[in-house]
Design a protein around this nucleic acid. Sequence first.
DNA 1: GATACATAATGAATACGTTTCATCATTATT
DNA 2: AATAATGATGAAACGTATTCATTATGTATC
Lengths: 304, 304
Amino acid sequence: MYLELRHLRSFLAIDETGSLARAAERLHLTQSALSHQVKALENYYGTPLFLRSTKPLRLTPAGRKLLELARHVLPGVEQVEGELQRVARGRAGRLHISIECHACFEWLLPLLDRYREQWPEVEVDIRLGVSFDPIPALQNGTLDLVISSDPVAGNDLVFEPLFAYQALLVLARGHKLTKKDRVEAGDLADQTLITYPVERKRLEVFSRFLQPAGVEPAFVRQVELTAIILQLVAGRRGVAVLPDWVVREPVRQQRLAVRALGASGLFGTLYAAVRSLDRSVAYMDAFIRLARDAAGSGNGVVTG
Amino acid sequence: MYLELRHLRSFLAIDETGSLARAAERLHLTQSALSHQVKALENYYGTPLFLRSTKPLRLTPAGRKLLELARHVLPGVEQVEGELQRVARGRAGRLHISIECHACFEWLLPLLDRYREQWPEVEVDIRLGVSFDPIPALQNGTLDLVISSDPVAGNDLVFEPLFAYQALLVLARGHKLTKKDRVEAGDLADQTLITYPVERKRLEVFSRFLQPAGVEPAFVRQVELTAIILQLVAGRRGVAVLPDWVVREPVRQQRLAVRALGASGLFGTLYAAVRSLDRSVAYMDAFIRLARDAAGSGNGVVTG
DNA sequence: GATACATAATGAATACGTTTCATCATTATT
DNA sequence: AATAATGATGAAACGTATTCATTATGTATC
């Protein structure tokens, strides 16, 4: 275990220039250095690598094996070095995102389309496998960014606020609760509540609205896709609590009605959590800015 | 251009052991050395390669690129190093052979079959492209061994005698020249001579027999394959001059007759020419021994 | 939450190996 | 045969990877 890339680079140069002297020039070394280097290798392997008796220096079969190795290895090395340079400049890198809130797909997917165009060298992906416990995954490097609505302490992470939202009760047109301006927890006791299929503690309806009031809905139905939830609500199969940005459009088209939750409404803020180290990386910063813009262009707070 | 294989080997060890301390042990280094090494790389590329905040040390995406490079590169390096070790021990290598004498295929091909079995790691090949001027090709490394019947000076090459042979005039049974015990050059003046399609100076009939006597055959016909030449001679289309080992069998079966050339017969010796450097290499020596054995087991001199 | 343990980071000193320098030997070219 | 050009060689210089000794940090354990 002695061979180094230096040797392979020398071999390539010697072969391409056909002489130690010219190769040395190209490598910014002296002819002597190369001569010593080759000799050391020949010594180490116990077999000649060059035929010295000919004038355009020629390789022995053993030497040719090293040359082939150089040709096989060095391009890959150069490519990776180039990539690392771009990573250092923040042009390239990995952006594996996890979302705690199911509804975020709504604005995240179109955003990623635009992002990919501007940052083609960033490997963007949404990782659903770790969505149950994303913060440790972010800390240990499995993830690079987490969309979350509750910041946690820890100085190795930063939570960048993206935009505020309001959780709204979504109702079919003419639903009896549309008669009330503000809906209280008790109003849901006789309702079917449609939620995403995740733990209750991760659903704000429960953690911040129903559980504090000790209310349990008549029935809870779990549905994966936002579009289906909206269909079911419109079809009077139940009610749902969703962030404002999801229901803005159907409400505008008068396909659905919404009501604020509680006396003052249920508000929250969406954050992008990243490792402190990564915060200043160009492609990270760009993503956060883009996400904030996404809010500005239509996901404003609906004040009920 | 700073990365070295050492760094890749370190990366692999660190990733596989999950800690600098254990990796250092495996690499016969201190933990400190590895720490410095990693830090130098991070410094050089301007980007972190490991996440320090976690206990099983984890790679950043940039670090993972280096690890992938290591996984891609190191197996190839190890393999080539292994091959070079075997080359040094004379177990592996290249044996590109050129034959000056066309008739040598007769004993060379079966010999190579046996040789390949015993030396599977040697790349054996017969190179016909350089047969017109094989000695310089041997000197500059294009060839590794030349079967030749005339040694030339030069201390970078050695000519190892393989076996002696006699050039014999091959005749059809009952041909008029079979009446003579010894055939002189003049006897061929009215004959059709069948030769291999090579320059006259490389044909011993001409260079050592006809030209010294100033005799030209009535007609010269060039044929590539030995078997065809023998057929044509048997069919009375002409006569040929071939080494004894080629005609031993047809003569024994009384399908052809042979006569010595000149008063004392035309004898020669076949040599294996190799670079002096290669002479002691195990697989070269083995080939030469095998070729000599081939002579002993049937290619003895026919004394006319 | 404090303590002990393991592991990594750091700075200075050392040791090692590569490179240079100066020179000689060899090989092509005229 | 003479002369460039190129490669080989040995000793010295240089740079840098490694070690040593120590501190800092983080992880388990009580």
